[in-house]
């Protein structure tokens, strides 16, 4: 017996009993970027029993400014994030079982993880709403709480979704937000990340020790540069006829029609991406956004074309896109989500 968790056990709402609970629980983190690495390190230090991390990306130099588990060696080796994260987490706390999955957090994979490994909490550390809507439906279907977190620039937001108690993301959003501002287009500073991580981990710990009455219950947002902080109680937004959490759920984001469809275009070294749900872009606004980042943009009334080194991304008004310069569907998806959210 060592002193590893003594300070956390001295904290009365956790105590020895809470610590025993934490060490018996399983957390799934979807995404191993800034939020994913922050959440993972905190939960592994806190002694969670098992952690599963899933991510399809590899470590790049531009990640090191805020993705706290990665080193220069990982970027040099272009190590998959899930693998690099697992290696570092093993150094931090070898008592925790960490499962790293290098792959796409799609409908099939997230349902498999939910059904087979039964996580107690899901932490959202993704960078797009399409995956969040899948997490939301998985949460509703399998009765697993999930903690939304997101940040851009100096702004961050978080909410804890509890099946059958709180509204779900579908209730809050009604429609899927369409891209524009992501960390790769608007930048991000690490204190905004850390603030969201702090909110997510605190709520996760409350869930893991079973202290549900201490949950925040509010949608919280802040801006650490412009010094703002807001929290709104959103209980009244819960909809009885919600297709995800209502009385007759159909879990629309788990159905085939709502999934992003991709196809490698024969002989063209290009991938076509057709996003889930309905999107409609304001093309001049989108072109303007790309141009502001110093990217080379060409546009006409039907599409926006932007050059990205060896790739070219062409976006149509309905959100359909072509990624030229690759036959790799994962790479194309990564580029799509990076620039369009």
């Amino acid at each position: 017996m060592n002193e590893r968790y003594s300070r956390q056990e001295l904290f009365a709402p956790i105590g020895k009993e809470g610590q025993a609970n934490i060490s018996a629980k399983h957390v799934l983190i979807v995404g191993a970027g800034a939020l994913g690495t922050g959440n993972a390190e905190a939960l592994v230090r806190a002694g969670v029993g098992k952690l599963t991390m899933i991510d399809r990306d590899y470590v790049e130099w531009s990640n090191l400014q805020r993705q706290q588990l990665y080193s220069e060696d990982d970027a040099k080796a272009r190590l998959p994030k899930a693998i690099a994260a697992k290696q570092r987490l093993a150094q931090v706390n070898s008592e925790v079982e960490v499962e790293a999955i290098v792959g796409d957090a799609n409908v099939d994979e997230l349902q498999r993880i939910a059904a087979e490994t039964k996580p107690d909490v899901i932490i959202d550390a993704t960078d797009n709403f399409e995956t969040r809507m899948i997490i939301n439906d998985v949460s509703c279907k399998y009765g697993i709480p999930w903690i939304y977190g997101a940040c851009v620039g100096s702004y961050g937001i978080s909410y804890t979704f509890i099946p059958r108690k709180t509204p779900c993301l579908h209730c809050l959003l009604e429609t899927m937000p369409v891209g524009g501002l992501t960390c790769d287009t608007a930048g991000i500073i690490s204190p905004a990340v850390q603030m969201v991580v702090a909110y997510q981990v605190a709520e996760a710990l409350k869930l893991l020790v079973g202290d549900e009455q201490s949950l925040r219950g509010k949608l919280v947002s802040f801006d650490v540069w412009n010094n703002q902080h807001t929290a709104i109680r959103v209980d009244q937004v819960k909809k009885e006829d919600c297709p995800s959490c209502g009385t007759n759920p159909t879990y629309p984001y788990l159905s085939y029609e709502m999934q992003t469809k991709t196809a490698v275009l024969c002989g063209r070294n290009s991938v076509q991406i057709r996003p889930a749900g309905k999107r409609e872009y304001d093309l001049p606004q989108l072109a303007d956004l790309f141009a502001k980042q110093g990217l080379r943009v060409e546009t006409n009334p039907y599409l926006v074309s932007v050059s990205l080194g060896e790739h070219r991304l062409v976006v149509f008004r309905d959100g359909r896109a072509l990624v030229h310069g690759t036959k790799d569907i994962q790479e194309a998806k990564t580029i799509y989500h990076r620039y369009l959210g």
Binding site: F129, R132, A150, C151, I157, E174, T230, G341
Partner: peptide
């Protein structure tokens, strides 16, 4: 009180109203 989206156009604001706005972002 949370205002429904379809009422944004018709909900008049008065001097001194307390307004809270939280907007969704996707990055992470």
């Amino acid at each position: 009180h949370i205002v429904q989206k379809q009422e944004y156009e018709t909900t008049a604001l008065c001097n001194g109203d307390r307004v809270e706005i939280v907007h969704f972002v996707g990055g992470g």
